[in-house]
């Protein structure tokens, strides 16, 4: 076993892992469309993601919007286009930074916790206990988390987008003295509903990615507390990297 493991190239390992994660996702969709729908489990996970992540998403969104205003003001001032700062902040937030930063923060807060919970359930045989009761652990543990990730990430992204624009407004208009009318007019003129919409689609995909990867890592954790710790770290690293890679792919497809 270890000999074969050593011979497997990283590429092969990546492909195999990708396959197994996809399989778990398919399986959880299969259980998700099958009665009984475990609504209470889904609501509990939505609350869990929300409670865990709202504060950190607000703070991240706020400071991102503020620093965006600062940076773009510095650039635009050189050719007297300070009025475009509002539009720049809003476009960057809705199209890119809102979805991506929110997903990365939720990965750190909720994704790691999901992996740790499922990992603990695995090593203490709670997952086996479900199996023995003829109940699907995927249906009870994985499906609700993936649905919650899919639904909650767009919600949190809207919050992040909004707070980011507010942060940009405070820095741009109140601190740097950009004309309020220009700031808002240009923002409304250049930001289309489609920008917001596409950002939300991205965040929903990221929500699926982070919850699926976290569940996968936790579900197949091995080897006591150490194994759970390893699963948690891997969950955060793998979902963050996957989110950034798929961000490029989705963006190039959509815009």
């Amino acid at each position: 076993m270890t000999m074969i493991g050593g011979l497997l190239s990283p590429v092969e390992r990546f492909v195999r892992e990708f396959g197994r994660i996809t399989l778990m996702f398919t399986e959880s969709v299969y259980w998700g469309v099958r009665r009984p729908f475990k609504l209470d489990y889904i609501f509990k996970q939505m609350e869990f993601i929300g409670v865990n992540s709202t504060i950190v998403v607000i703070i991240t969104g706020m400071f991102t919007g503020m620093v965006l205003a600062l940076q773009s003001y510095y650039g635009f001032r050189k050719f007297g286009a300070e009025g475009l700062v509002g539009a720049t902040v809003a476009l960057s937030m809705t199209r890119e930074l809102g979805p991506v930063l929110t997903s990365l923060m939720v990965t750190g807060r909720a994704g790691s916790a999901m992996a740790a919970q499922l990992g603990t359930m695995r090593v203490t045989e709670q997952i086996d206990a479900l199996t023995v009761m003829a109940l699907s652990p995927i249906k009870y543990l994985v499906t609700p988390r993936i649905i919650a990730g899919f639904l909650m990430l767009p919600v949190l992204t809207v919050v992040s987008d909004f707070i980011g624009v507010v942060g940009g407004y405070v820095v741009g208009v109140k601190l740097l003295g950009i004309n309020e009318g220009a700031f808002i007019d240009k923002m409304i003129k250049y930001v289309e509903l489609n920008d917001i919409y596409n950002g939300l689609v991205k965040s929903a995909v990221f929500g699926i990615i982070l919850s699926t990867v976290a569940c996968y890592k936790g579900f197949y954790a091995r080897g006591g507390a150490e194994g759970v710790g390893k699963a948690t770290t891997e969950a955060v690293v793998v979902s963050s990297v996957t989110i950034l890679m798929s961000d490029y792919i989705l963006t190039s497809l959509m815009f």
Binding site: T120, T124, E125, Q126, D128, A129, V132, A134
Partner: peptide, 20 residues
């Protein structure tokens, strides 16, 4: 297998209670 499992109960060595 699940149909067979319906006829079983099991006590795990470490109890395996759901801690949630």
């Amino acid at each position: 297998l699940n149909e067979v499992r319906m006829r079983f109960g099991m006590l795990f060595q470490e109890a395996a209670l759901f801690d949630s």
